[in-house]
Amino acid sequence: MLDKLKKTLVKSPIVKKGEYDYFVHPITDGIFLVEPDLLREVSEGISKVADLNVDKIVCMESMGIHIATALSLKTDIPFVVVRKRHYGLDGEVAVHQVTGYSKGELYINGIKKGDRLLIVDDVLSTGGTMIAVLDALKTSEGEITDIVVVVEKGDGKARVKTETGYDVKTLVKVDVKDGEVVIEDSML
Rank of each mutant, 00 (worst) to 15 (best):
F32D: 03
D178R: 14
T162Y: 01
E163W: 04
F79W: 06
I27E: 00
K7F: 04
V120P: 06
E141C: 08
K84S: 12
L39H: 08
T129H: 00
K17T: 12
E61H: 13
L137V: 02
A158N: 13
E41V: 05
E44H: 09
G18P: 00
A158L: 13
G30K: 10
G88W: 00
L9G: 08
D51I: 12
S62H: 02
V123Q: 04
V80H: 02
K112N: 09
T8N: 15
H86F: 15
K138D: 07
D29L: 07
L52F: 15
T164V: 06
D122H: 02
V15H: 03
V49Q: 05
D146C: 12
L117H: 07
I14F: 04
S125C: 00
R159K: 14
A132P: 05
D55K: 02
M1W: 13
V150W: 00
V98H: 04
D135I: 06
R83Q: 12
V15L: 05
L9S: 09
D76Y: 10
H86I: 00
I67H: 06
I131V: 03
E44L: 01
E152G: 04
K103D: 06
I67S: 06
V149I: 02
R40E: 07
L134F: 11
S47G: 15
T164G: 14
V182H: 00
I144A: 11
G18I: 10
R83C: 03
H66T: 13
E41S: 08
L117T: 06
G30L: 10
T8E: 06
E41A: 13
G156Q: 11
H25L: 12
V150C: 10
E180I: 09
K157T: 01
I119A: 08
D185W: 12
D167K: 13
T99H: 14
A136K: 00
S47Q: 15
T170I: 08
D185T: 05
D29F: 10
G18D: 14
A70S: 14
V149F: 12
A50F: 00
D51R: 07
L117V: 02
E35T: 15
Y107W: 15
G114Q: 14
Q97K: 14
D121H: 07
F23M: 06
S62T: 15
K11H: 02
G156T: 00
G128N: 10
E180T: 05
V174W: 06
G91T: 02
V34D: 05
G110Q: 11
D167H: 11
L89A: 14
